[in-house]
Write a protein that binds this DNA or RNA. Structure first.
Lengths: 360, 360
DNA sequence: CTGTTAGCGCCTTCAG
DNA sequence: CTGAAGGCGCTAACAG
């Protein structure tokens, strides 16, 4: 069993290298920055050797201090336990690598206070830009961003008072497609389940798209004098995952509707979850309430395509997560580079993944 | 639609504040560092006002450069898509907040090259310590860590040539408990499924514990002259998730064993997955191969307790992920503080979560 | 081609 | 109690 030494023997600095190579700091600096064509072969080799001998590694902090840029960008995420977030992250990381940035990942864990702290932290570390998957609350702490402050790009959700580029799913189109899928499959009673949506723009858009699609279908059925189609009914249910009591109440209310549908028309009610966390909450409850064959009683589909979707066979709308992350960094890179243009909006298309749950 | 300005108006520096407050940088610095008792009330107030007026925020980079410490620690993770990792992260974050560190999360995405790059990066940013959930490969890039270099703490897996504190699950005990649970439940043919385990210490320990537990039980059955107990049989199957071809072959081989067990003794074979990714791979395959009622044919249990475990009703061994992350930071903090002691090993107990899959 | 000189923003002696 | 001066490690003009 060996002992760990902690008295780190102070890393070599550029001066050490210069001395070791018998030259000045400037030449070493030039070498480091690839201005290798301006150095005599001899000098270059001496520097190279010295660096190797001292195991020298330039101090990024000092570099950043001098140059005024440190290649750091902040990635503020609301919730890492949401698979969506991790997937977006993969795109962000790939783009960062390609463009030479180092992402600082900050996990707010759905807490406003955390979000505030991290934003503050990122500012003091002088990151060159920030990618924000914010909680959605209107937050003073967001002020240093955008508009003359640190360049920022939003992911998935807009934030009041922060006018910045945004990239995310084409929510309206995705939910419309999903709802129409359900209608075509003959589900004429659909319940859209979503977390409290007033403050989160993507949820708001999804909910609105659902209502609109249903309303349009209802109107169409009305005007279809022949009356072949039944008039679809749609309703929005709010599921507040942050409040266990409320969750139980909502679950119970849904159970009643499910039972009423089966006992009445004999048809399955369709539950359309606005995202994966909601879908999981529903699936867990239904499974425990109705048993493993719960899908005989109710159809579930969801925005987001978590790993368990295939396992349980529910239809989903897969988000282009990787592309979202990648694009966000590209936008940010342009802003950091000084691009001046109106704020942009990239709404990427989702993909409907049809599985057994929405079979007739 | 508004335009974004990018020409950030250069943030205020300590000199600006000093000038604005009509004093010297020293006093401002003192104010910032809480040496507030050494300042006259008047001066303190002027500084406070100036800071507010200029919206001044000290530059951490410059601070770090001067002080030689920047409160940054690196968190190198092998795979963020593994729920285990995210859960550990929560503990890490909580501890960092409590101890005043800022974790830089680096995601190697299971690629050695990435791991190398990040390690290098963390070094150049002069992080004060690193928490390493390494890929497990023997890697030159790990050399700057531990022993006289940057303090490091390992999570879950040891790494050859890096002698550092380590914290993780008490793998041996956990797998023993799991295996014994299966035996008690009457499963006498058990297949332990694990990713290639030679190079990853935790997998190695888990596999060994499985073998040992089975062997002991077999011996006990042999010596039980009365012969009441059947002699349990255990086998290890390697599932290489990185190789799709191999995965298919392994799945098929398992199918044959499952069928043989049912057709032979009429008993269900038990599959014991060494972690969640393995369990998911198995569950997805079994579900598609045998249909939604696959659990009638085979019992599945797993180390790790992913979100879909409850949904599908499989028995698991939940890891104390949060505690693991928290403890890792505590260890690291001590090392950073200069604690000199033999390398420590914190093996935290898991928790058996019994669900329907292992019912007789 | 090469070295000298000034800082980047901050903290820390060391004298007032 | 307060401020001036020096330097952390590095880069960017300037001169040679």
């Amino acid at each position: 069993m060996s002992y760990m030494r902690t008295g780190a023997p102070r890393r070599a600095t550029i001066s050490d290298v210069a001395r070791e190579a018998g030259t000045g700091k400037t030449s070493v600096s030039r070498y480091l920055n690839g201005e290798t064509n301006v150095l005599s072969l001899d000098l270059r080799e001496r520097i190279e050797a010295a660096i190797k001998r001292l195991d020298y590694q330039p101090n990024q902090m000092a570099r950043g201090l001098k140059r005024g840029r440190n290649r750091l960008i902040g990635m503020l995420v609301a919730d890492l336990t949401n698979p969506y977030t991790v997937e977006v992250l993969q795109g962000v990381e790939a783009a960062c690598q390609a463009l030479g940035y180092m992402p600082l990942i900050c996990h707010a864990a759905n807490e406003v206070e955390m979000e505030r702290r991290f934003l503050q932290l990122l500012t003091t570390y002088r990151v060159e830009g920030v990618i924000v998957n914010a909680l959605g609350v209107k937050d003073e702490a967001l002020k240093p961003l955008g508009e003359g402050g640190i360049p920022a790009v939003l992911v998935d959700r807009k934030v009041a008072e922060l006018d910045a580029d945004i990239v995310g799913l084409d929510n309206a189109e995705a939910v419309r497609a999903g709802t129409q899928h359900l209608l075509r499959r003959g589900f004429d009673e659909i319940c859209f389940v979503v977390q409290p949506f007033e403050r989160v723009s993507s949820r708001r858009v999804r909910e609105a798209a659902f209502r609109e699609t249903i309303d349009n279908a209802a109107r169409a059925a009305d005007s279809d004098a022949a009356g072949g189609e039944p008039r679809p009914r749609g309703e929005t249910t709010v599921l507040d995952l942050a409040d266990p009591e409320a969750v139980m109440r909502t679950h119970a209310a849904l159970d009643r509707r499910i039972d009423a549908a089966v006992d009445g028309s004999g048809k399955r009610l369709a539950l359309f979850a606005a995202n994966a966390p909601v879908a999981l909450s529903l699936a867990l409850h239904l499974n425990s309430h109705y048993g493993p064959r719960w899908q005989d009683r109710v159809a579930l589909m969801s925005v987001d395509d978590p790993e368990w979707a295939e396992l349980t066979g529910i239809t989903t709308i897969r988000q282009p997560t990787y592309a979202i992350g990648y694009r966000a960094v590209e936008f940010l890179h342009e802003r950091i580079g000084g691009v001046l243009s109106p704020t942009r909006e990239a709404m990427l298309p989702g993909e409907l993944v049809v599985r057994g749950s929405t079979a007739r």
